[in-house]
Design a protein around this nucleic acid. Structure first.
Length: 475
RNA sequence: GGAGAGGUGGCCGAGUGGUUUAAGGCGAUGGUCUUGAAAACCAUUGUACGGUUUCGCCGUACCGCAGGUUCGAAUCCUGUCCUCUCCGCCA
């Protein structure tokens, strides 16, 4: 979520930033937000000053009622006079009448028998006043709900260093790293290699669960497990604390990490109340410190977790249907950081380098892409993708995406900290990056390391995780 | 799954409808004292939103969450979420 105060005070600047995303519909949303915000503040101010008067009167009435020094006759007189003052309305005068700060009071109704009717008149006057105020608050609540809804649909603003282009085709690749292998035979795609080696079973995956599901067996399953262990160990060596997380979370968490409301149809609900399967561990980690106030001394917090990821892929029906590039269930090791605003961009660079080093360690050619404004997605201020080359499919495969969301998620999830020596809270910055995703990494290994005789060499870095095995052989 | 108890500030914990501050304690921070530290003593110490004459001040809301009753709710009622205890089941 964006800072409403920023939208209010620098509306044109915010619009200029949104325009970089190439999203026309959102600009109109900003106008609507500015309107609602003004309306909200005005309504609130009115309600609150009326409520302040009401609170004073109620307390003063309690004081009058409980007074041990005042005669019943005087109480009745004061109550009657206050009731008419409220009707006028003159709340200030009514208050001083009731709380006794108007010392000597002469008025009609000196009879003790008038006490009950007098209080009834007073209560009736207060009730009329209260009804008006409650109606005002109800209006304020509607306005606030409408404003909140608009705010939840607003994407993050791009960082000033993000290149302004509107198409993903304009993403800017770095020079690829690693050696592109010269094949003396036609490299096969993984959807041929996998079944030939007996390690990917498409038919049985579909039998069990439908299209875009698959089974890894034997070396396929082991290789994936080795990759996960290797990635986790690397992250741990880089100072990330490993987490084991729930795979099912409350809907609120998806609002916190900004999948909801915009991408609601990409996640799988489970039949247990308002709960959902993780589309990425980012959702769980981003909300780990939800509604907490951390101290600067605790920062940065670095976490890494492996979880399955479940995505319905409705929006990309028909795309990448071959193989296991785009599936409903995959495994991912996710790095995540909570930092101060000052530290977040250095942390993004370091996190991205960490992800790149995994590709290098596996000896797979890769490149880093600087993502342009139009392809940033909903929540990133700045993003790098990392792609591995897969010679069988003949394309670059995205295996990691590293983002700084600045305070966008923090504002939604209530992630705050006290800066050193300060009593005011600030929002944290959050960063996330895959390190890495599989089975895409598995695809790259199979396609890059395939041999003419059908064997696939296991990257040296993974061999310690596989009992020292050097290659996978066809069954 | 069954039965019961509970949810109050960073933490513990008091608070059965008002008479203007959620008592008290712990911790933390600052100060006094001290060669230094500890102890003791004094002071300060929640969050969000809004207003404002902006190093501050004022107001409103918040006692798990959402409703309701009432002139007035931490307090009464309903729903809901969560935690704990016992029983049952279970990798």
């Amino acid at each position: 979520m964006l800072d409403i105060a920023l939208i209010r005070s620098r509306t044109d600047w915010v619009k200029a930033q949104i325009a970089k995303l190439g999203d026309e519909a959102t600009l109109a949303r900003i106008d609507r937000i500015v309107e609602l915000d003004a309306e909200r503040r005005q309504t609130r101010t009115e309600c609150e000053s009326a409520q302040a008067a009401r609170n004073k009167l109620n307390r003063a009435m309690g004081k009058l009622r409980g007074s041990k020094t005042m005669s019943p006759a005087e109480k009745a007189a004061r109550a009657n006079a206050a009731a008419s003052a409220i009707a006028k309305p003159d709340y200030e005068y009514a208050t001083v009448l009731l709380d006794g700060s108007k010392a000597a009071f002469e008025g009609a109704g000196d009879d003790e028998a008038d006490l009950q009717p007098a209080f009834q008149a007073l209560i009736a006057a207060l009730k009329r006043m209260g009804d008006t105020i409650d109606a005002g608050y109800a209006r304020a609540k509607d306005i606030e709900a409408a404003l909140q809804e608009e705010m939840l649909w607003l994407p993050n603003l791009p960082h000033e260093t993000v290149p302004v282009f509107f198409s993903e085709d304009d993403n800017i690749p770095d020079v690829p790293v690693g050696e592109f292998r010269e094949f003396d035979f036609e490299p096969k795609p993984h959807w041929e290699l996998g079944p030939a080696l007996g390690i990917i079973d498409f038919e049985r995956g579909v039998k069990l669960s439908g299209s875009r599901y698959y089974v890894l067996s034997g070396w396929g399953a082991r290789l994936q497990r080795a990759l996960i262990s290797f990635f986790l160990d690397c992250a741990r060596a880089n100072g990330y604390e490993e987490l084991y997380l729930p795979y099912i979370v409350h809907g609120q968490m998806l609002y916190g990490s900004a999948q909801f409301p915009k991408f609601q149809d990409t996640v799988y609900p489970v039949a247990d109340g308002d709960k959902y399967l993780l589309p990425t561990s980012e959702v769980a980690i981003a909300n780990l410190h939800r509604d907490e106030i951390l101290t600067e001394a605790q920062l940065p917090l670095r976490y890494v977790a492996h979880t399955p990821c479940f995505r319905s892929e409705k929006a990309s029906a028909g795309r990448d249907v071959r193989g296991i590039k785009r599936v409903h269930q995959f495994e991912k090791v996710e790095m995540f950081q909570f930092t101060t605003p000052e530290a977040s961009y250095d942390a993004l660079e370091a996190m991205t380098r960490g992800a790149e080093s995994l590709c290098a360690a596996l000896d797979i050619p890769y490149r880093r892409l600087e993502i342009v404004s139009g392809d940033l997605g909903f929540s990133a201020s700045k993003k790098y993708d990392i792609e591995m080359w897969s010679p069988g499919c003949g394309e670059w495969l995205e295996v990691s995406s590293c983002s700084n969301t600045e305070a966008f998620q923090a504002r939604r999830a209530g992630l705050r900290y006290y800066p050193r020596g300060s009593r005011k809270t600030r929002f944290l910055h959050t960063l996330n990056g895959s390190g890495l995703a599989t089975p895409r990494t598995l695809i790259a290994i199979l396609e890059n390391n395939q041999q003419a005789d059908g064997n696939v060499l296991i990257p040296e870095a993974l061999r310690p995780y596989l009992g020292g095995a050097e290659a996978i052989y066809p069954k």
